[in-house]
Design a binder for these strands. Structure first.
Length: 956
RNA sequence: GGGCACGUAGCUCAGCGGGAGAGCACUACCUUGACAUGGUAGGGGUCACAGGUUCGAUCCCUGUCGUGCCCA
């Protein structure tokens, strides 16, 4: 029995339990052992996270695909899991320690701090998973993984070691993006360029051998800089080789003001004559461009900042080398100052001595850390790098040759653009939470990379024994006793970039490096569903790692969906804190309404600005469905065994079979093409505007009429079409459909596992055959998909007949409203000059037409009665004798409007047909179409003229 | 500076080489035996602007203006 009211919250909880208890989403269900697999790996959300709208959209779309394919008979694996999210998680826990006034991370030390993080993960790591379940995500939760699971960590180590052995991971000392707040290196992708209003300082650098005077422009060269404080680390001045102003200065030296260092003037194309003074100071240790210039001209690299971006001058040998006596005073004064405080001081000092020429306001891009928000410092350190350029080659080829394709296609361009200019990927992070790098160092800094500590230690000790650094006996002792080797062999403190482990996700979650049956069966996956914001972070890197280690691209399709933005159109992000909580929406309208809204708005290539009114509208849609099912139940509509809609006798039932078939095709094709909005629109219109508005209304007289074959058939068809609707809608609104499926009949299976609507008349055995995979479990899955033919059942005769009823009722309703005839007032209908077809049809539908169009009777006549309102329905005249009821002059106005419209139509077509070029160039069917339109308009005009004539004679 | 989108009804958005669509909002009428979270009917848009291609442009091309995003 269906409850009177639709209450999402109650249903959702029960249905979730139902699925869970039945293991409905488990991959490798025994009965699907031979079915083709369908695999999606979830983009693992951060364990720190909670569900935001982006997750809701992302997972709704994945769930639609998974539920759809599951119903199509495939063995679906939707692999869930979470990401350890290095920086984000470490920050959360650190902040928690501060908030609770507990010992800081450094007070705790590495081991105890990591314990805390694990503890925190155990407490709150399940939140996001539960939220995904509330959304209805049909993941195989029994297979949930975490990027720092034992197995996944093993995969990470294996990949690191192999890449290192192959020379694709190496350690290098170069500039990195350094976050002076988080005290770690970050990759290029984690840097955001933000436009900042700053200044351009013009500084005078005295030329060696001349007496400096601010008034003598030949005694100095002016350099422009946005970062005056880095001048302490300057080791050169660059001018453009073609810049005539500075020709004679190239090769000479300047004396760095305040510091006294002697540095060369070099010619380099990097310097832009149009910008600033045309001369730039070169600070190789603090600027990426300067680093390259410095390399070209063999300039030394002097780092003047420490890791917290404070000036580090005292004891800084690079800085002090070659400075004149007495200049250490400045070093002592500025030492330890923050970079921005130092800037002020240095500018002031420069001004005091006449070295500051002028200051210009200047807007420029400044790099910021995407997590910390502070200004990123290019910093000279030792870090581990992945040779991304080499790995990118196969990854580009796979997309180029179509092995993997993006939907929508235009994202491929973005992918190539980035891949073609890819830089070495800095993968080491100076954090504690993450996969510690499997590298050990000897006393001389020699590195030993191995999968286990035992192996690395044994390699290292062997090496040092051989080098006679230690004796064989010492080596043996150190091998056996960790304490004895402490200080001699030490492990790299750093951990890997979070995205390093995410890059392995499609195969590490399936058990790699072990050769598991799951890996064989479910890799490569079918489709990856994700947002464009992580194409570089994640998609590209999965492509690289997947191809390198599995020799096959990790997925054949990458569906890139829109971003859900906040009401202002701004990107929602965890760090900005402007997320809208989808759970509030779920609480208010239900998960089904939210899911349907997101899919209805998920048009390819367009962002979603979510409006609550849309969600409300789709909640109403759910209510509509609910009530339609109630109606069916109240009328004892139950499914009959072996019911075949194509064998029905009643035109109405044949019509809904025809329409259902059409809707099935539309929904199926739209989902197959990732056109989620079209699929949602098709099912929405079918349920509301076809099934509810017309089919059920037209069926009412039969259902409330006398018992008999017609009634029995209609009851069965109502139930059948309802079931088809529940199936078609299930991927979008799983909860309400599963509930209605359960309460409307005794079922063999859950709706989630029921077969997708198929070509009418196909036996279950046939469908089962088609759903079978070609490959047994132990073989590699083949590319052949189990295509279930949803070809249409069509019945043009039924379509024409019901179409006539619909048109007639609509026309009468429209004119009644226009004439202000109160609903309570019934009118008569006269069909004049009716064709045999109409005379045949009308009696069959008189009950329903009377009911829907508020008629008292329906009759036939040769001619329309005088003084009646005349309507044109499919080329024939239907009249409402309303003389004395309504003002017929209003009718005259109405007809004249119609006449004008008909004339306009005729004229427009005539103009087209008169155009010789149109007739000559347009496709034949287009021309024919126009001709048909003209004929129809002419016929319409004739009838209208006739009606007007009759009206006139009636009023005269 | 380079690249990618987008400017369609009051709002949120579909569509797209052959007569402009949806939801919400709005107006009028209706509590008819599934549903007022409903029904019926209706108003509302020189499809940003200017050129071009075409027999024909909201749709393709170019430019302008405006908005957003990505990369330097």
């Amino acid at each position: 029995m269906i409850e009177k009211n639709y209450q999402p919250a109650d249903i959702e909880e029960r249905m979730a339990r139902l699925w869970e208890d039945a293991g409905a989403f488990k991959a490798g269900r025994p009965e699907r052992r031979d079915a083709a697999p369908f695999t999606i790996v979830i983009p693992p959300p951060n364990v720190t996270g909670s569900l935001h709208m982006g997750h809701a959209l992302n997972n709704t779309l994945q769930d639609i695909l998974c539920r759809f394919e599951r119903m199509r008979g495939r063995d679906v694996l939707w692999q869930p899991g979470t990401d350890h999210a290095g920086i984000a998680t470490q920050m959360v826990v650190e902040r928690q320690l501060i908030d609770r006034q507990q010992p800081t991370r450094r007070d705790l030390g590495r081991d105890r701090f990591l314990e805390r993080v694990w503890q925190w993960k155990a407490e709150s790591g399940g939140i996001i998973v539960n939220q995904l379940k509330r959304l209805g995500a049909s993941c195989d939760w029994s297979r949930e993984r975490f990027t720092m699971d034992e197995g996944l960590s093993r995969a990470v180590v294996k990949v690191f070691v192999e890449l290192h052995r192959q020379g694709l991971i190496y350690k290098d000392k170069r500039l990195v993006n350094w976050d002076p707040k988080l005290l770690t290196a970050i990759s290029d992708l984690e840097v955001q360029q933000i436009e900042v209003k700053g200044s351009l300082w013009y500084l005078r650098y005295p030329i060696e051998g001349k007496t400096f005077s601010p008034d003598d422009s030949t005694s100095f060269i002016v350099v422009a800089t946005t970062r005056p404080e880095t001048m302490l680390g300057d080791t050169g001045v660059a001018v453009h080789p073609d810049d005539e102003r500075y020709q004679d200065l190239v090769g000479k030296h300047v004396i760095l003001p305040l510091v006294g260092r002697r540095i060369p003037i070099v010619a380099d194309e990097y310097s832009d004559p149009e910008k600033g003074s045309g001369a730039v100071k070169i600070t190789p240790a603090h600027d990426f461009n300067d680093f390259e210039v410095g390399r070209r001209h063999n300039l030394s690299q002097i780092s003047v900042l420490d890791k917290e971006a404070n000036l580090a001058l005292v004891g800084n040998e690079d800085y002090l080398r070659g400075l004149p006596e007495g200049s250490t005073e400045l070093a002592e004064e500025l030492n330890g100052l923050d970079r921005f405080a130092a800037r002020k001081k240095i500018v002031a000092r420069m001004e005091d001595f006449g070295f500051l020429e002028r200051i210009e306001p200047n807007t420029h891009m400044v790099p910021h850390g995407d997590r910390s928000g502070v200004v990123i410092e290019p910093y000279l350190t030792d870090q581990w790098y992945v040779d991304a350029k080499t790995l990118a080659q196969p990854a580009m080829a796979a997309v180029r040759n179509g092995t993997t394709s993006f939907v929508p296609k235009n994202w491929e361009k973005t992918y190539f653009e980035w891949m073609e200019n890819i830089q070495p990927w800095c993968v080491s992070r100076q954090l504690w939470w993450g996969h510690q790098i499997p590298a050990w160092y000897g006393p001389d800094g020699k590195v030993f990379v191995a999968e286990t500590e035992e192996e690395a230690v044994s390699n290292a000790l062997g090496y040092y024994v051989e080098q006679e650094v230690i004796t064989v006996e010492q080596g043996r002792e150190m091998a056996l006793d960790r304490n004895k080797r402490a200080g001699f062999i030490t492990r790299d403190e750093d951990v890997l970039d979070t995205w390093f482990s995410s890059a392995l996700w499609p195969f590490s979650t399936l058990g790699w490096p072990d050769h598991t049956p799951e890996l064989k069966r479910y890799y490569p996956t079918d489709v990856l569903v994700t947002g464009f914001d992580i194409i570089f972070f994640w998609v590209a890197r999965m492509m690289m790692m997947g191809l390198h280690f599995m020799k096959e691209a990790p997925f054949s399709t990458v569906y890139i969906h829109a971003l859900v933005r906040d009401e202002k159109g701004a990107k929602m992000s965890k760090s900005k804190g402007n997320v809208i909580d989808p759970l509030h929406i779920i609480d208010e309208y239900g998960a089904d309404a939210l899911r349907f809204t997101l899919s209805a708005m998920a048009a390819q290539g367009r962002d979603i600005k979510l409006a609550a009114s849309r969600v409300e509208g789709y909640r109403n849609f759910a209510t509509k469905l609910w009530n339609a099912c109630r109606f069916a139940e109240m009328n004892a509509c139950t499914l009959l065994p072996d019911f075949d809609p194509t064998k029905t006798e009643q035109t109405l039932n044949r019509w809904i079979a025809h329409e259902t078939s059409r809707a099935t095709r539309e929904v199926t094709e739209a989902i197959e093409a990732y056109r989620f909005n079209d699929a949602a629109g098709a099912i929405y219109r079918f349920v509301w505007n076809v099934y509810c508005d017309w089919y059920l209304e037209l069926a009412k007289p039969v259902l409330t009429g006398e018992e008999g074959a017609a009634k029995a058939e209609t009851r069965a068809t109502v139930a059948w079409a309802r079931d088809e609707i529940l199936k078609l809608l299930h991927p979008f609104m799983p909860f309400i459909t599963e509930e209605l499926w359960a309460v409307t009949a005794k079922r063999d299976s859950l709706l989630a596992l029921a077969p997708w609507p198929r070509k009418a008349g196909l036996s279950p055995e046939q469908v089962a055959m088609m759903a079978l995979a070609v490959s047994p479990v132990e073989q590699l899955p083949t590319l052949a998909l189990p295509v279930i033919d949803t070809a249409e059942f069509v019945d043009p005769a039924a379509e024409a007949e019901i179409g006539w009823v619909v048109d007639l009722v609509t026309a009468i309703r429209s004119v009644r409203a226009e004439m202000n005839i109160p609903p309570a007032r019934l009118t008569a209908l006269v069909l004049s000059g009716a064709s045999a077809e109409t005379r045949d049809r009308a009696p069959r539908w008189s009950d329903v037409i009377k009911r829907m169009a508020r008629l008292s009777e329906i009759s036939f006549a040769e001619k329309a009665p005088e003084g009646s309102v005349q309507l044109l329905v499919r080329g024939e005249v239907a009249s409402l004798p309303l003389k004395g009821v309504v003002d017929l002059s209003a009718e005259k106005v109405r007809l004249e409007k119609e006449l004008a419209k008909a004339d306009a139509d005729i004229n427009r077509v005539d103009a087209k047909l008169a155009n010789e070029k149109f007739v000559a160039n347009a496709p034949e069917e287009v021309v024919d179409e126009e001709k048909e339109k003209r004929e129809a308009a002419v016929a319409r005009k004739a009838k209208i003229l006739e009606a007007l004539k009759r009206l006139k004679s009636a009023s005269s």
